[in-house]
Simulated assay, not measured.
Amino acid sequence: MRYLCPTLLLRQSGVLLLSFFVFVACEEAVDLDFDVPKRKLVLSSSFYPNEPVVLKVSATRPRGNAPASEIIDAQVSLFEGNELAEVLTYSPGLEHTMPGYYRTLDFTPVEGQQYTIHVSVPGFDPVTAISSIPEPVAINSLAVTNLTRMVEGDQVVYDYFLQIDYADPTSETNYYDLRISQLVIPFKVTAAGDTLRMDPVPKAVTTPRRLAADGESVSILLQDKAEDSVLEVHLQSMIHPRTELFDRIVAELRTVSPEYYFYQRSLVQPGELSGTGLEEPVIYYNNVNSGLGVFAGYNSVQQDFSPVQD
Results as ranks from 00 to 15, higher is better:
residue 112 G to F: 01
residue 164 I to C: 10
residue 20 F to A: 06
residue 112 G to Y: 06
residue 175 Y to C: 03
residue 282 V to M: 09
residue 115 Y to H: 04
residue 81 G to C: 01
residue 234 H to M: 05
residue 212 A to L: 13
residue 21 F to W: 12
residue 276 T to D: 01
residue 208 P to G: 07
residue 212 A to P: 02
residue 260 Y to N: 02
residue 265 R to I: 03
residue 119 V to P: 11
residue 138 A to K: 14
residue 243 T to H: 05
residue 271 G to Q: 11
residue 168 D to E: 13
residue 130 I to K: 11
residue 68 A to K: 04
residue 185 I to E: 10
residue 50 N to P: 01
residue 238 M to T: 14
residue 162 L to H: 06
residue 244 E to V: 01
residue 47 F to Y: 14
residue 23 F to D: 10
residue 1 M to I: 00
residue 31 D to H: 13
residue 283 I to Q: 11
residue 45 S to G: 10
residue 20 F to Q: 08
residue 100 G to S: 15
residue 75 Q to L: 03
residue 205 V to L: 11
residue 210 R to L: 07
residue 113 Q to N: 15
residue 6 P to G: 06
residue 100 G to K: 14
residue 152 E to W: 05
residue 131 S to L: 08
residue 58 S to G: 12
residue 181 S to V: 00
residue 307 P to S: 03
residue 294 V to P: 12
residue 250 V to W: 01
residue 77 S to E: 12
residue 144 V to W: 09
residue 93 G to P: 09
residue 261 Y to V: 02
residue 193 G to L: 09
residue 225 K to D: 10
residue 221 L to N: 01
residue 50 N to K: 10
residue 53 V to K: 10
residue 175 Y to E: 01
residue 141 S to P: 02
residue 224 D to T: 14
residue 275 G to D: 10
residue 257 S to T: 02
residue 41 L to F: 03
residue 210 R to G: 01
residue 75 Q to T: 11
residue 231 L to S: 02
